[in-house]
Nucleic acid binder design. Structure first.
Lengths: 190, 190
DNA sequence: ATAGTATGAGACGAAGTTGTCTCAAACTAG
DNA sequence: CTAGTTTGAGACAACTTCGTCTCATACTAT
């Protein structure tokens, strides 16, 4: 067994970030295996993409958990919430770097179970942002739902700026955090 | 001549926002015409998509011009630059609503002339953001290039929040502007 | 060494898409 | 009304992709 499913998943994810419409033949080539072997591990293209979608959602959920969003929200402590926010944004940037193609690809919207789970994760996140608003960490004149969309948008921006080589990876966390919290205005006349 | 190329372009744009991978048959159906007639106006699918790409770039350029970005940047006047910024963001939101699929679809990246022109327009915009930084309208500790990416990201967020029905269209301009300028932080401890 | 397993190359049909073509019907300008 | 134009429906071949299958080769564990 020279080829692992993990190897396939990793290589396929990497290649789909460059060529989101890659065929099974192209993916097999990028993985360094044959189309036959690829089909032995994943019965269909939809099966493979579904697995990758689940992986990306796993990662999303893991980042939420690792940042301790639920606990921070429950505590209501501004310091803990702030720390959770910083942590989760940093983790999300890493996730967007690795699973970037899943952010905007159309196949996700075609798989109802993935959509349902994505909605669940989004709702959890919105609950955290709402708690951050109550704790005085985030402004209250924007809906928590809109805030969650701005996070999503910033991740798309982060992904593309990285791909185009417009920013250095090591600067990205701080850029996203700063822009998310304070925006781009000079702040002189708010 | 019951069907105009304008009608085709408008209907195709509208439908591609819902189904970015639609085939020529699906597009013809959505337009309300036949596949044969569609091919009479656009020789190939690539031809059609290229036309739509050019349209979206036309619109981008028109919004930059209508907002008077170049003149505002040249003047160096903070008030004019601020007004141009507000105007262009408002126009961009409308553009993202209409040509949303072009924001993240892969076909754009496969057409070198479109990529080249998109880069040109991006550079013009970056020049404006840099002028806004010099005028004290935008913060100077973020690169103008990164700022342009955050605008792009916010437009993706605006597009999706609209599609999902999460925000009202009439609130969207203000949401984007506020988030762009001031971010989501409470601002209590900057 | 041998038996079992995993792989690569290729053939194959099924399905979908694309672009072209034909022809009859509908429409329109004069 | 009539001649020219536009359209819709369908047929057609070429192409791509997909999923399956076979078979010979390489590898691995015992």
């Amino acid at each position: 067994m020279a080829i692992t499913e993990e190897k396939i998943i990793a290589a396929a994810t990497r290649h789909l970030n460059q060529e989101p419409t890659a065929s099974m033949a192209r993916l097999a080539e990028a993985i360094g295996t044959s189309r036959a072997t690829l089909h032995r591990h994943f019965a269909s293209r939809e099966d493979l993409l579904h697995t990758l979608g689940v992986r990306s959602l796993d990662r999303w959920e893991a980042s939420q958990r690792e940042a301790g969003l639920a606990e921070a929200a429950a505590s209501g402590d501004p310091a803990r919430i702030t720390e959770g926010l910083h942590t989760v944004l940093r983790l999300f940037v890493a996730d967007a770097d690795e699973y970037g193609f899943a952010l905007t690809d159309y196949f996700m919207a075609e798989m109802p179970d993935l959509v349902a789970r994505a909605n669940e994760l989004a709702e959890r996140e919105i609950a955290f942002y709402a708690a951050a608003q109550r704790a005085g960490v985030l402004r209250t004149d924007l809906s928590a739902r809109w805030i969650s969309y701005t996070v999503y948008g910033l991740l798309v921006a982060a992904r593309d700026s990285l791909r185009h080589g417009s920013v250095a990876r090591r600067d990205l966390d701080q850029l996203v955090l700063e822009t998310f919290l304070n925006g781009n205005g000079a702040g002189g006349t708010p």
